[in-house]
Structure formats: structure tokens, C-alpha cells
Write a protein that binds this DNA or RNA. Structure first.
Lengths: 144, 144
DNA sequence: TGTCCACTTTAGAATTGTTCTAATCTACTT
DNA sequence: AAGTAGATTAGAACAATTCTAAAGTGGACA
């Protein structure tokens, strides 16, 4: 795909979505929006999206991928899931419990298990075993 | 604190803990174990623990901090919480829902909200606003 | 008790994912 | 059409973590 492959209708729809989110409708954003929102729900990382863009004959820099994902994120067009082993906290409490994470202060607070419980756990897809359940409740300092 | 500040009783106790976990009892491990398990539950990052060790007059390399934390982690002496913005997945599904994360494949699968619900949410500590709730259920490929 | 070997630790380099910088470009207003 | 605020770029910088290869050490066993 390159940008010109989009039909006027697609461009209108995606442009509208961008503008509604307070973002200018630019070529790279339209193209990435098309990849992201063109067909059903998706999970991407910056890397997978970049590769996909390149495969589609689109030349966008890595920085633009990051900028765009973060702009879409703050505009509420995307949500974010943090999973990998990077910037970890280690907790001497190895019992089953969950956490408040205060974003401004990068500080963790334990939540006793009985204050937040999962009402039901879905079955692991067959072929997989449960390795753990993480519940992180993110907090922001309240506006003054 | 330096290693020699530990009483024989403390050394015995920590040594036993290490050995029970299948780890040799070495000076750096004993000293770090003392910092970690010496007083109540704690949250540390590699960095905070390293600084604490240095302040205690202990000279341990960064690599040892990481090695030790990871060894304690796989031995079950610590648990890990992943919170920060690093290695993120972006999800076009912005409705309230949670995820399976398949560790071997670094792949995400949506869990419909009705299959995993929090039975109750603790109140945010005063002065803080709820910014989001992340539930990640980690999966490992089942042994063959 | 001394020797030996597998396991540990170390310093520093390498890697990975992400953000920053400063220059260039472009969408939109007038 | 020109000006300007915002967007994009390549590449450098950064931060957290892991790797590497060499030197050190715990503890089993003679």
C-alpha cells in the first residue's frame, strides 16, 4: 500500500477520525491510521508497525512511528499494554497481591489481596499454562 | 553495613534461605538478601538496590545486582512487577478489557471484559486519581 | 586441610527499546 | 501565495538490561 492507494472515502473517514482527535491529517498519519484501524482490532509494537509500513511500500521513519503511536495514544485512539521485562520492580512480597503504581513518582504500593480480587479467571487457551496474573492500578496525582 | 556487620544468627538465617532456594550462599548474596529481607516487605529496582548497597558501604557491581535479583526471582524469593513505559504494545481496542500475554511468543490476546472482572476496586489513596487498571495474565506454553 | 572445579562476580561492552535534537518539510490560515 | 505552527526526518543520545570473558570463591572430596 502506498498513500495513493487509499480511496477518497477511506481518506475522508480516517481524516475525520484524526481531526476529531485533534490531530492534523498528514500523509504518514493517514497511512498508519489505515494500517491500524483499517481492519478489526489489532496489537502492534512500534517495531511491528514499522515493518508493516515498510512492507507496504511506505517510507516512514522510526521516530514518526513512535511519535504517531504516542499521539494516537494520548488522543485515546489506542490503548497501551506494558508487558515485557524492562523497568521492573522487585517485590519481597511473594504472596498473591496487586499494586498501585504512582506514575509521577514511579513508586509502587501493595494492595492487599482482599481489596482487589478477580471475580473470575478465564481459562488459559489450550496448550498454555498460567504463569501469573498482574493487576496494576495506575494512579496520577490529583489536580491541585 | 558491610558483610561483617551481620551476626552469626542473621547469616545462618539468610544462608538457610538461600540454600533452601538452591542458591550458594556467597558474600554478595548474603548482603543483598539482608537488605531485601531484613525488614518487612519492600519494593526495589536494580538501581535503588544498587544505591542502597553502595550507601551501606558494600561494593557490588551492577551486573551482580541484576544477576542476584533475577536469581532470587526465579527461586521464588521475589516477585516482579512490570510497570514502566518500555516495550509497549499498542492496542486498537480502547474499550475496557484485559490481556493474555504469551511469554514465549511475546504475543498478546484480548480477553473480553466479561471474562475477567475485578470484584472490587480499592479506593485510590487520597490525593490521587485513577489513571487506569491493567490486568495481564501471563501464559507459558504447556510442557509437551 | 589443601586442591579443584563448577559456580560467582566483575568491569565494561553490547543490545534493545525509546526519546531527543536540530534541520527540513508541509498543512493550514489569511 | 506567504507565513507559521506543527510534523517529519536521520541520527545521536539515553536508560534499563544483558552479555562476555576473565578473575575470584564456595564447598565437596581427597
Amino acid at each position: 500500500m502506498n498513500f495513493d492507494a487509499l480511496t477518497p472515502e477511506q481518506i475522508d473517514r480516517l481524516s475525520g477520525k484524526l481531526r476529531a482527535a485533534g490531530l492534523r491529517s498528514t500523509r504518514p498519519r493517514l497511512a498508519l491510521a489505515h494500517l491500524l484501524f483499517g481492519a478489526g482490532n489489532r496489537h502492534v509494537t512500534a517495531e511491528t508497525l514499522h515493518e508493516e509500513a515498510r512492507n507496504a511500500g511506505l517510507s516512514v521513519s522510526q521516530a514518526t512511528i513512535y511519535n504517531t503511536l504516542n499521539q494516537f495514544l494520548s488522543a485515546g485512539l489506542l490503548s497501551e499494554v506494558i508487558v515485557d521485562h524492562a523497568r521492573s520492580y522487585f517485590d519481597t512480597n511473594v504472596t498473591d497481591h496487586h499494586h498501585f503504581f504512582i506514575e509521577d513518582e514511579t513508586r509502587l504500593i501493595d494492595i492487599p489481596l482482599d481489596e482487589v480480587a478477580l471475580s473470575s479467571l478465564p481459562n488459559a487457551p489450550s496448550g498454555y499454562d498460567l504463569a501469573g496474573v498482574d493487576v496494576v492500578i495506575r494512579l496520577l496525582k490529583a489536580p491541585a
